[in-house]
Write a protein that binds this DNA or RNA. Structure first.
Lengths: 143, 143
DNA sequence: CTTTTTGCAAAGCTTTTGCACCACA
DNA sequence: TGTGGTGCAAAAGCTTTGCAAAAAG
């Protein structure tokens, strides 16, 4: 069940017994109104429409938690810095360059293959969206 | 060139132009005197022998940096919480259970296979020691 | 009217940094 | 006597929490 629009996300929240308030709706809108599927909590704060009073950081963090519980977002720590939250409608793994910090996404098909490989070897249920691999991106490697 | 003993680590530090002080030696000893190959900075602080005055956190962090630069240790963030530093003489990837926090290691052979797969698909040079994958361990999955 | 949610401020946790002191060549 | 290492304390960055005021049902 993919969640790809604001309305679907709101519906999903309700299905999880979460009351939908203006602040929460604003957070959801900020996330789905952008092409980015990688946002930090603070980026969400700054993106909330200026039409309403900007929600407090605490509220945004709490809402992101609710969205994660509802399966709309997945929080991922890319090593250093703040967690990024990414939408679950776009499965991918993350390659992080230890030199320049660039984040490259691995497409779903490769992630599938990878997941199969891992689950074959380890008694572990992989969360495909939470694969983080560090290394050097092509540009930094060539320097 | 694997670094597997205190002396090799000390030698490696010297080769990188780092002067070896009692405090630094104590940190190296604390790391190599234990069966663990996963230590946080604070665990290192607490493990330093009680025979000498315990080095300050800052000193330990600075020394861990030096050891990382020298290729003796690799810092890895397992999502939440402090970074772990693991010895480079024991290549492995990390599976982290999002429910109980357990860390399962993926052995070198599987990591190799994984690395090949990834480097085939992405123009990226993988750091095999810095693969972190979240999911559910067998125990938490069965509950 | 009761239960949540929100904003604010404070605290938490990990790590970094500035600076004075100290050790050692 | 100068170079760099160390400890201490403070700060920085991200996130969580306690609590009183506000909003929702």
């Amino acid at each position: 069940v993919l969640v790809t629009t604001i309305d679907e996300a709101i519906t999903r929240l309700r299905a999880h017994g979460v009351t939908v308030t203006p602040a929460r709706r604003a957070v959801v809108a900020a996330i789905f109104d952008t092409g980015e599927h990688h946002l930090t909590a603070l980026e969400v704060v700054h993106r909330v429409e200026r039409t309403r009073r900007r929600p407090d950081r605490a509220t945004v963090y709490r809402t992101l938690d609710l969205l994660a519980d509802a399966g709309v977002l997945r929080p991922v720590h890319l090593g250093t810095g703040p967690a990024i939250y990414h939408r679950t409608d776009h499965t991918h793994a993350h390659l992080v360059c230890t030199s320049c910090g660039a984040v490259v996404e691995i497409p779903a098909e490769a992630v599938d293959e990878l997941t199969r490989l891992l689950e074959r070897d380890a008694r572990f249920t992989i969360e495909p969206d939470q694969i983080v691999i560090s290394g050097l991106c092509a540009m930094c490697h060539d320097v």
